[in-house]
Nucleic acid binder design. Sequence first.
RNA 1: GGCGGGCUAGCUCAAUUGGCAGAGCAAGUGACUCUUAAUCACUAGGUUCGGGGUUCGAGUCCCCGGCCCGUCACCA
Length: 505
Amino acid sequence: MRANTPENMTPEDQRDQHEQPNQPDQQIGEQKLINDRLAKTAQLRSRGIDPYPPRFDRTHTTAEAVKLFEDLEGASSARDEGEQLRTATIRVAGRIMARRGQGKASFIDLKDGHGPVQVFARQNTMGDDAYAIIDLLDIGDIIGVEGPVIRTRRGEISVEATEITVLTKSMRPLPDKWGGLQDQEVRFRQRYLDLITNERAMKNALLRSNVVRVMRDFMHGRGFIEVETPILVPVAAGAQATPFKTHHNQLDRDLYLRIATELYLKKLIVGGIERVFEIGRLFRNEGLDHDHNPEFTTIESYQAYADYNDVMEMVENMVAHIARETTGSMVLPEVEGVRPEIDLTPPWPRLDLRTEIKERTGIDFVETPDVESLSQAMRERGIHVEEGSVWGRLLDKVISSEIEPNLIQPHFLVDYPVEMSPLAKRKPGTDGIVERFEAFVVGSELATHSPSSTTRSTSVNASNNRSGCETSLVTLRPTGWTRIFWWRSNTECHRRAGWDSASTA
RNA sequence: GGCGGGCUAGCUCAAUUGGCAGAGCAAGUGACUCUUAAUCACUAGGUUCGGGGUUCGAGUCCCCGGCCCGUCACCA
């Protein structure tokens, strides 16, 4: 819009015009918005107001303020009709999310960590001088509000301001109050903006904290003790993944960031602890996408004298318990267009791997015992065959592309061929089958009890350095093990719908 | 790494066949003492991701580069 600009002016001419003395305040773009706020900050200071005071004595959260009024309303019932109810004076604090001027009155939507509350500010309530501060407020500022809680004529429970205190003057505009912040990169790199703007981001952060707390309680309730084991390790053992490498200067020695917690937990079992778990970060130097972050959190547990049936029982009960404790139900509601309702109620079906593959694809891995026959069967069904893959790797591809995406409701796949997990416990009475399971929910892997070193064979262990050679010195008891992946992405991960969308419940 | 989609005002998004770069929110000024996506009037705000090319004329077409998203592959 250049209504005042002659059509034949170049952009340079216009810029020159902007810099002329009669338009000294002309600013462009975002800088103008910031300068407006700097000017308001200066005005606050000139009135003797500190725009960044050191503390504020809050008496109520927004949620408590609303409840305070509701309790008063409930107690006074209908007999005080006609008289406006008014609580005692309280003080709330939060960020200005929106404001609506109405002549010599204003409404401010205030949000703190517990939710929103409306502030109702009137000039004849606050007085002319105190009300004047309204003009110096912007969306994004943090303010403290003192006054009683009332219900406005239109029914909104509001703090009726007698005094407003600027706690933090904000310099940059917030994202659109209605459209919010959409750019995923900005959301992840400026997480604070996402938390301010998108209610779901805040809910997810709180949900995650609850998930961890409940998970921890669950494990303690089952007699597991929690430990922390080394993250900087001389040998990155316990999984097949590329580790991050680092160096300790004083020792002049290369170290690795752990790729699993497995080895040290196993040592604790050897040492006599019977049930142990660790929640912590693992680091894997590999590609990243929405399902894979180089650093991610797992819980890993070991339970002496247990087998994979015991561990499956634990996993399904843990997950269902967490869902119930954090969302109120073991059934996660449908997310439109993303996934159907998910029922986590145990027990989850145990699917025999061989049977499942046969039913889904027609491939019987017992009848395709070598790379050639399995590759042939895969090609016939249009499954990508990566040249040079070993047999176990090929079968893993069949599972991940044909079985896993279909396991929307929670399931366990059990009893894997030994070629896929050469170090796992053999299943008694079978030929070439190991006691391995993987749990799947919403088409992706949730937990595993698998490949390495639940065996107690020293010879096998000694042959595989990365799977825990040190434990081969002392024999491991029969032990059940699991590793549960969750929130592999540090950032919000919409494809992990099982956890993520629980927050929308 | 392959293929596909995208990058325009602080934010969310338009722009027909290549023909004057727009709107809503946010911001500024004014009106309004019960609004809640407040309303009304006016104002300002642009290196259309970067570079090169074709053209009378490029947000639009071509080439090079960057970044984001999706997908397949890799990886687990």
